[in-house]
Deep mutational scan, measured.
Amino acid sequence: RIEKCYFCSGPIYPGHGMMFVRNDCKVFRFCKSKCHKNFKKKRNPRKVRWTKAFRKAAGKELTV
């Protein structure tokens, strides 16, 4: 099963990425440490230029 990165919305293939479980049992999956570090710094994915959330908000990503 291919999961989605919580921060950048990129695909996470089986055996890859990192799973972060908070004390309230909420699960966050990250494709790379870059995404996990930005999440820990409480960065907003919509303001980080390389994420899909930014591209969609800025009108750069074509949605079908």
Rank of each mutant, 00 (worst) to 15 (best):
K47I: 11
G59E: 14
A57Y: 04
F39G: 02
F54P: 15
N23P: 09
G17V: 03
K47N: 12
K41G: 06
E61M: 04
K26I: 03
P45W: 04
V21T: 07
N23M: 05
R1W: 07
V64E: 07
K56M: 06
F20M: 10
C25H: 08
C31T: 00
S33Q: 10
K32N: 15
K40T: 13
C35T: 00
R29M: 07
K52A: 10
N44D: 13
Y6P: 01
R49T: 15
K37Y: 08
G15H: 07
I2F: 07
T63E: 14
A58N: 09
T63N: 10
K32T: 14
G15K: 01
K52F: 09
R43D: 15
K41W: 03
G17T: 05
R55I: 10
V48K: 06
G15C: 01
S33H: 02
V48H: 11
H16Y: 09
W50N: 11
C31G: 00
F39Q: 02
H36S: 06
R43M: 14
R55D: 15
A57E: 15
T51S: 09
V64C: 08
R55A: 15
N23F: 01
K37P: 01
F30H: 00
R55Y: 13
P45C: 04
K56R: 04
K60Q: 14
F54V: 12
T63Q: 11
V64R: 05
R22N: 15
F7L: 06
D24Y: 00
L62K: 13
F20N: 02
G59P: 12
K34H: 07
A53P: 10
K34A: 11
R43P: 11
R1S: 13
K56E: 15
H16W: 04
F28I: 07
N38K: 03
R49D: 15
I2E: 12
T63C: 07
V27F: 02
K42H: 01
R1C: 13
E61W: 06
V27R: 01
V48P: 08
N38A: 07
D24A: 01
L62H: 07
C35D: 01
A58T: 07
R43T: 15
P45V: 04
M19Y: 07
C35H: 00
M19T: 12
F30T: 01
A53W: 05
K47G: 12
R55Q: 15
V27I: 07
R1K: 11
R46W: 10
T63S: 12
G15F: 01
W50I: 05
C35P: 00
D24Q: 00
T63L: 07
K32V: 02
K42Y: 07
I2M: 12
R43W: 13
K32E: 14
K40G: 06
F20G: 04
G59N: 07
F30M: 04
M19R: 04
M19C: 04
F39C: 02
E61A: 02
V48M: 07
Y6I: 02
N44L: 04
F7Q: 14
E61N: 01
V27D: 05
K60C: 14
V21R: 02
N44S: 08
R1A: 11
C25T: 11
F20R: 01
G59L: 08
Y6F: 08
T63H: 09
R55M: 14
Y13C: 06
K26G: 12
P14M: 03
N38T: 04
H16R: 05
F28S: 03
C31D: 00
Y6H: 11
V21A: 04
Y6Q: 10
R22G: 15
F39Y: 12
F28Q: 05
C35Y: 01
H16N: 13
K60N: 13
K34L: 08
C31I: 00
Y13L: 09
G59S: 10
K40W: 10
R46N: 14
V21H: 00
N23L: 06
V27T: 07
K40L: 11
N23E: 13
C31E: 00
F54K: 10
D24H: 01
N38S: 08
Y6M: 11
K60P: 15
A53D: 15
P45G: 08
V27P: 03
K56C: 15
K32Q: 13
K37H: 08
F30A: 04
K60Y: 10
A53L: 07
E61Y: 02
K40Y: 11
R29H: 09
N23T: 07
D24R: 00
N38I: 01
N38L: 05
D24I: 00
S33M: 08
N44C: 06
I2T: 05
F54Q: 14
D24T: 01
V27N: 01
K52Q: 14
R46Y: 09
G17E: 11
W50K: 05
I2R: 01
K26Y: 04
A57W: 07
R46M: 11
K40M: 13
N23V: 08
I2H: 02
C25W: 06
K32Y: 01
K32F: 00
H16D: 09
R43Y: 14
D24M: 00
K37A: 13
R29W: 12
A58Y: 06
K42S: 12
R46A: 13
K47H: 09
C5Y: 00
R55K: 12
C35S: 00
I12N: 00
E61K: 00
G17D: 08
C35L: 00
Y13S: 12
C25L: 08
R22V: 10
K40R: 05
R1G: 12
N44P: 05
K26L: 03
K26V: 03
T63R: 02
M18V: 09
F20Q: 05
P45M: 06
W50R: 05
F7T: 13
K56G: 14
Y13K: 05
T51E: 14
T51L: 05
C31Q: 00
K37T: 11
R46Q: 14
T51R: 02
Y6C: 12
Y6D: 05
R29Q: 07
N23S: 09
T51M: 05
M18A: 08
G15Q: 06
V27M: 07
N23Y: 05
T63Y: 07
K47A: 10
C35W: 00
L62E: 15
V21W: 04
R55C: 14
P14L: 03
Y13W: 10
F39W: 10
R29S: 07
D24G: 03
R46S: 14
K60S: 14
R55V: 15
P45Q: 09
L62V: 06
K47W: 09
R46P: 14
I2N: 10
K41L: 06
F39N: 03
R55W: 13
K60V: 13
G15N: 09
V64K: 05
K34Q: 14
V21C: 02
W50L: 12
A57T: 08
K40C: 11
F30D: 00
K56L: 13
K47F: 07
I2S: 08
R22K: 07
K52P: 14
A53N: 10
K34P: 01
F30V: 06
Y13I: 11
S33K: 05
F20I: 11
F20D: 10
K60M: 14
C35K: 00
P45E: 13
G17L: 02
Y13M: 12
G15D: 10
H16A: 11
A58W: 06
N23G: 11
N44R: 02
V48D: 14
N23K: 02
Y13G: 12
F54E: 15
N23H: 05
P14S: 04
F20W: 09
A57M: 06
V27K: 02
L62P: 09
C35F: 01
K37R: 04
V48G: 07
K34M: 06
K40P: 01
C8F: 02
A53G: 09
C25D: 13
F39T: 02
K34G: 07
R22W: 07
K47E: 15
N44Y: 04
F39L: 02
S33A: 09
R1L: 14
W50D: 15
Y6K: 01
N38M: 09
K56F: 10
G15W: 01
C35E: 00
A58G: 08
R49L: 13
F7E: 15
F20H: 02
G59D: 14
A58E: 14
V48R: 03
Y13R: 06
V48L: 07
R49C: 13
E61R: 00
